[in-house]
């Protein structure tokens, strides 16, 4: 019994100690770099930052998300040392410099048993807007097309909409998915499904013997190689955005992000390594 009664006190003591320790961990003669912007680039940049901090213990990198527009705006106004944007810079943003750290390519996928070998952009648009709902209309079997779409806000959806110039509310989907893995499992589990995922993720799944096939787009095979050499159309660059001359730790971080030591991190997130 006495042992029992001492336990809450011990627990409180442990709690208080841990709070105390947590509060005095912030010793600051460190340089702090703030990186803000695209939620697509952020997961990759967070990994790169961790790797960078290991080699530069005197630098702390703070990665925050908030969309590509915030990345550009923050870099321009100096609120962030480096901005992140999952698109090329526009003409009115020529005061900034873009440093491409990776590419993201999106591929259309069907089940391996699906006899359809290619879809034209117009056919894809018609299918996603509900004007074509049977595979027969595009040279396939007499079966309903199961249209797989991405959830609102996902960057994959944004690239897809932008490429085919579609508005989100005009899409008539049968299944809405979250991440690439769910998209792959959905299409691999339904012979009549049509979806789109990151090409890197799809290539990995095909390599792991998932019954899946990437469709070519505009005659170009959907492969990470074709995203890298910029032949494949449905892709976009993942950029770091800076203003003015780069120096100090910010220059070191950008250089690190463009070096081959981040290749495993890029591959891990199914992005495409740029030509170095």
């Amino acid at each position: 019994m006495p042992a029992c009664s001492r336990r809450p006190a011990a627990l409180l003591l442990a709690l208080a100690t841990s709070l105390l320790l947590a509060s005095c961990g912030d010793s600051s003669n460190q340089t702090r770099l703030t990186v803000t912007g695209s939620s697509t680039v952020a997961p990759l940049m967070a990994e790169i930052a961790l790797q960078f901090e290991k080699n530069h213990p005197d630098v702390r990198v703070d990665v925050q998300t908030g969309g590509s527009s915030r990345g550009v705006a923050d870099a321009r106004r100096g609120l962030a040392d480096i901005g992140m944007a999952s698109r090329a810079l526009n003409d009115d943003e020529s005061d900034l410099t873009a440093h491409t750290i990776a590419y993201d390519g999106i591929g259309m996928i069907v089940h391996a048993d699906n006899p359809v070998r290619a879809l034209s952009p117009q056919q894809i648009i018609d299918i996603y807007q509900g004007r074509i709902d049977n595979w027969q209309a595009v040279g396939g079997p007499d079966a309903q097309i199961i249209v797989v779409n991405k959830a609102q806000g996902r960057s994959t959806l944004e690239i897809f909409l932008e490429h085919f110039e579609l508005a989100a509310p005009s899409i008539k989907a049968d299944v809405v998915i979250g991440d690439n893995e769910q998209g792959i499992k959905t299409v691999a589990g339904n012979p009549y499904a049509l979806g789109y995922v990151s090409i890197g993720a799809a290539e990995y799944a095909v390599g792991a013997d998932e019954p899946l096939r990437l469709l070519p787009l505009e005659g170009v095979e959907a492969s990470t190689a074709n995203v890298r050499n910029q032949r494949y159309p449905m892709r976009r660059p993942l950029n770091l955005v800076t203003r003015g001359p780069l120096e100090g730790p910010a220059a070191a971080l950008v250089a690190h992000a463009q070096s081959s030591s981040v290749d495993p991190l890029i591959r891990q997130l199914y992005f495409v390594i740029p030509q170095r």
């Binding site: 309903q144 589990g189 339904n190």
Partner: peptide, 11 residues
């Protein structure tokens, strides 16, 4: 889901 897809629809 693949089992239910045989009944029609996405499963």
């Amino acid at each position: 889901v693949p089992l239910l897809a045989t009944l029609g629809g996405p499963g």
